[in-house]
Amino acid sequence: MVVTRMGDGSFITMTRDEVLRDVEEGVADAVKRGKIEPLSSDEIEHIVDICCRPQKFVSVEKGNELVLTYDSGTLKVTRLGIPIGMPQILQLYERVFGADSLELAYVHYSFKPIKSIVPEEQYAVAETSLVTTAPLLYGAMPNLPLYTKPDGPCENAAELLPMGKIEEAKRAQEEAAEYAIKDMVFVSSGVYEAGADGIDFDTTAAAGDAEFYATLKATEILREKYPDMAIEIGMAGEFVLGFHGSIEYDGVRLAGLYPHKQVGLAEKAGASVFGAVVNTNSSRTFPWNLGRAVTFCKACREAANIPVHANVGMGVGAVPLVMTPPIDCVSRASTAMAEVGKMDGL
């Protein structure tokens, strides 16, 4: 019997045949939803093999290692209550955790509140860049809802839509997107000029298609302004929610795009790295989620001309939805993303 988990982290046992069936079903679900190519039978077997290995921690064969990045790095150690400054946290990531890039982030992690403290963040960027050698990104979320009432000046589409005020909801989102673009460009310019190597737009499109639009536009402006700036667009989920429904970028309707379509637009806007996200279904098994996540990510990688880093963490990339992601699943998901998904990084 194979000991594995459900997407909510609980342990289950399955036979190898059951694992195979679930991986195949996960692949089929991705194919159906994304209208993408399935994995080959050899690739499916490889995933089954990764799931069925008896070791608690599994890894890649030599030569298949990936670039390893972390988002919101400085926040994760701060949350543990360890009294330590941001530069020291990033030194730990670089020298202890083996991170290949570093991300400095303010505790609120959204562009809107950061705009008023940019000088402080510039100081942190400058200080960190003096004591680390890995590429230093500054990360934050576009977080469009912060521009809507009661937190911002625009009307709240989440209140307008259920009332049937569709045009008003669309206009409110477009207005919020313009505010978000300004803040993203302002903050990103500030930290880049203070010495950061680039910016990570993290959890992009969490509020749907208008937020994805804002991020793409901000990327476009920054790319023109700073040709050498590294820009990562990391997504919030596998599917761009059609909360606006008809907003377009470069003539493409953004609602309903899956990773293999998202990456093309990120590329056009000027992104250097794309962070693909596939959500974990907590009611399905880890093998089902893994087959599904790898199918989506592989299709994304094949469609991309820029590096693709798969998100492998709590509730994404097949990792169960638990506070401390279990290493048996994290290591298996990472291995499958490298060896089957052919990712450039994690």
Binding site: R33, L161, K170, F243, H244, G245
Partner: peptide
């Protein structure tokens, strides 16, 4: 559910 139609259309249909 399948992502072929989005929230504004859903609401318009309901209306």
């Amino acid at each position: 559910e399948c992502g072929e139609l989005f929230l504004p259309e859903l609401i318009q249909s309901a209306e």
